[in-house]
Design a protein around this nucleic acid. Sequence first.
DNA 1: GGAGATCATAGGTCCTTCCAACGATTCTGT
DNA 2: ACAGAATCGTTGGAAGGACCTATGATCTCC
Lengths: 152, 152
Amino acid sequence: MESPPSRLSAKPSWLITQLAVHARRLVSAGFAEADARGYHYRLLAALHEFGPMSQAVLGRRCSVDRSDVVNAINELTGQGSVERAPDPADRRRNTVTITDEGRSRLRRMDEVLDGVQDDLLAPLSADERRLLVTLLGRLLDHHSGQVPGGDA
Amino acid sequence: MESPPSRLSAKPSWLITQLAVHARRLVSAGFAEADARGYHYRLLAALHEFGPMSQAVLGRRCSVDRSDVVNAINELTGQGSVERAPDPADRRRNTVTITDEGRSRLRRMDEVLDGVQDDLLAPLSADERRLLVTLLGRLLDHHSGQVPGGDA
DNA sequence: GGAGATCATAGGTCCTTCCAACGATTCTGT
DNA sequence: ACAGAATCGTTGGAAGGACCTATGATCTCC
């Protein structure tokens, strides 16, 4: 009925941020069923792929602030998805390890996410999807250099 | 140094939401200089393009919740960017009108935003940029049908 | 007229991203 | 060996954007 200002619909920054809103909606709707949220998936994915690591490394890898890692790991520990233990080699650090429960939760989230990708890209052909992913990947790569927290 | 989990970098939803983070950063850094934020631009853009309208219509057009419109219009009124007057024809409504001050602020924000688009899409050629905008536009169109608030 | 929709507003929630500061520890340069 | 710098985990907070519910006016449509 009421169309948005054309100034907006023309701007890439608008397209991206608005599409991200829809993506977020789909993702968190899916995660809600799995009793999880975005940060949980990120951290579990990293722990599963790279094995146990400190919270600081975890945060750098997943682009999550140190303080937010603390909070998310608290929640994941409560679920039994990860375990937190002091690192004997460096007593400043905690070593975080994924558990079987965590792995199984991660699997469930992955299934949910696969469905979400399909909804999100519904109007595009397989070729177009690949193309889009390539373009977005290049952009993200480019910008992942200069981050405020200071990593990649 | 520390690469993100491959599970993430492969997912379109991740690419989009993460790129949106960078876009947001660029945009709000720019807006900060103009003492504004996202909602302000959206609302001013609509008022400039379509003329005076009620807060409800404004919200529907810009995908901003009615209650958030109230707040943003309060701020814009404080700046002298818009004027709010009761609609004599329908005393439930307020008619919001952009002022010269608002138009000049909008212009400044537009300049800022143009620069941001360039930063955002830096790695892409002109053809690729057009392509990306087309793809994103189609996706956004598709998803703008089923919104929670219930507009487009 | 009365029922139901619509409007502006108030109040609050959630998630994500960030920042500043702290004590504890480790690393570094001299 | 020791002082200063850097790193780690943690606490506490702020800001934006997106949402939701509720309430009292006001309008519309039977």
